[in-house]
Write a protein that binds this DNA or RNA. Sequence first.
DNA 1: CGCGATTTGTGCACGTCTTCACAAGCGCCT
DNA 2: AGGCGCTTGTGAAGACGTGCACAAATCGCG
Lengths: 230, 230
Amino acid sequence: MARLPEYLRALHNLAETGHETISSEGLANAAGVNSAKLRKDLSQLGSYGTRGVGYDVGLLIEQIEYVLGLTQRRAVALVGVGNLGHALAGYDGFASRGFRIAALLDADPGRVGEEINGLVVRHIDELPRVAAEDSIAIGVIATPATAAQQVADQLVAVGVTSILNFAPCVLSVPSGVDVRKVDLAVELQILSFHEHRKASQTAFPTAGGSALTALPGGLAVTESQEAIGT
Amino acid sequence: MARLPEYLRALHNLAETGHETISSEGLANAAGVNSAKLRKDLSQLGSYGTRGVGYDVGLLIEQIEYVLGLTQRRAVALVGVGNLGHALAGYDGFASRGFRIAALLDADPGRVGEEINGLVVRHIDELPRVAAEDSIAIGVIATPATAAQQVADQLVAVGVTSILNFAPCVLSVPSGVDVRKVDLAVELQILSFHEHRKASQTAFPTAGGSALTALPGGLAVTESQEAIGT
DNA sequence: CGCGATTTGTGCACGTCTTCACAAGCGCCT
DNA sequence: AGGCGCTTGTGAAGACGTGCACAAATCGCG
Ligand SMILES: NC(=O)c1ccc[n+]([C@@H]2O[C@H](COP(=O)([O-])OP(=O)(O)OC[C@H]3O[C@@H](n4cnc5c(N)ncnc54)[C@H](O)[C@@H]3O)[C@@H](O)[C@H]2O)c1
Ligand SMILES: NC(=O)c1ccc[n+]([C@@H]2O[C@H](COP(=O)([O-])OP(=O)(O)OC[C@H]3O[C@@H](n4cnc5c(N)ncnc54)[C@H](O)[C@@H]3O)[C@@H](O)[C@H]2O)c1
């Protein structure tokens, strides 16, 4: 489940604040989900909670980290060290969540050789050599959309089977390769959509606005974080 | 639907390459979804496709932009101009997707006054004044997690009802306020999970690995982009 | 040792999303 | 004008995710 990382983060917070056990309701609250959903997720792991007590925080962290494959620190190659790439390269939050940025790659000769956070930017053509040195588990694409497909092909060619894509385009990859996409403009547009709905609802409380805004049954949106009561 | 922005991006690409009409299958391909799903989504908009021909690209763009509320350019306030905030502030991709960064805010006096992309960083305490000048539609939080809740409260206090949160924490907001979260570490961990599954499957083709990796029915993950044929 | 408080694990029902498959509609060509 | 091929729109079935509600299990305490 995609909620496991969320639980893991909440658990780490709880561990730091000294909790040794946590009830499903407490953890569900910290992760922002329904407690029944959380219990069902955890039971899928074959996880051992104790009835009447709750879950052992340390044990649960171990279990989730094992299922997520975080027992080994995975090496990440970051391609495209521009505006966004710089921010990612300088981010220390990855290290604490089980990842290690192993290589920075760019096509611009002007950027090659630059040092960021103790790591030197290398040319994209060195990707095969980089992959041979460090066994790269995940490739991150932070290049313009026009270059993204080409970079993806190069990553696949050297054996990378997981890609995180920041460029606003769909990538075509062989089956067996996983691609996840992060598009900030999409997130903003979804928020804008909700704004628009809210505005048109209050503007025409009786008539319900135009035909386009009065959609039958409303449009479902994959929730990112539900509202939590004041 | 959360897929509308994806369709919109694909449509803009098609418009630039000179297409005037597009079949559901063509657009579905460009957006990386099933064609039946796309048709059902579009029919929900009351959209006018022509049977035997397809959809009018220009008209469809107009319709989707209207539904998403992009007919007006929405003002965005960015709070936290650090590592990530700099990248976001310098990103020109927002302007072309219907948004305008109207204000940059930070709590660090050392950052206040800095100019990025023609916009001066102002102090977070000026938020009420900023909100009064520009009617802020969306707030973006790029502060450390420890400050995120406080910033969210401040945004809500000045009337912002849509928040995009980059900090790895759940925000508590009144109902009526929408929060979307982007957590890169979560994305990487989901990829890591898939890597782990792939690895354990190939390692033990007969036995099926340990009890924990051989989960009954497999764990579902919200797809980010499905694999597209070679 | 027994009882009550508490919390997990899950059966079940419900609503939603997805996909197939096909009828209806449109334009083009003859 | 008529037929043919192509494409949309949608009905229906199945898969899936969600949340309630409750039985089973455990601990602490008298
Ligand atoms: N900056 C942001 O905040 C932001 C936000 C959302 C999305 N994005 C997306 O992220 C991507 C990168 O954005 P950016 O602002 O960093 O752009 P940028 O132009 O600043 O950086 C792109 C980098 O990629 C490098 N590059 C180009 N072609 C390459 C290739 N074939 N191989 C390797 N490297 C190559 C360039 O040399 C450059 O350094 C874009 O697709 C953008 O749409 C950026
Ligand atoms: N940098 C990345 O690539 C990256 C990636 C994923 C997630 N994140 C998350 O994004 C957030 C920001 O990351 P960063 O690397 O830019 O951190 P950063 O420390 O570089 O920047 C944080 C900025 O927020 C400002 N700030 C702190 N408290 C504030 C307050 N109360 N009001 C207004 N501004 C305040 C600070 O002055 C600083 O400028 C963090 O939560 C981080 O976990 C960052």
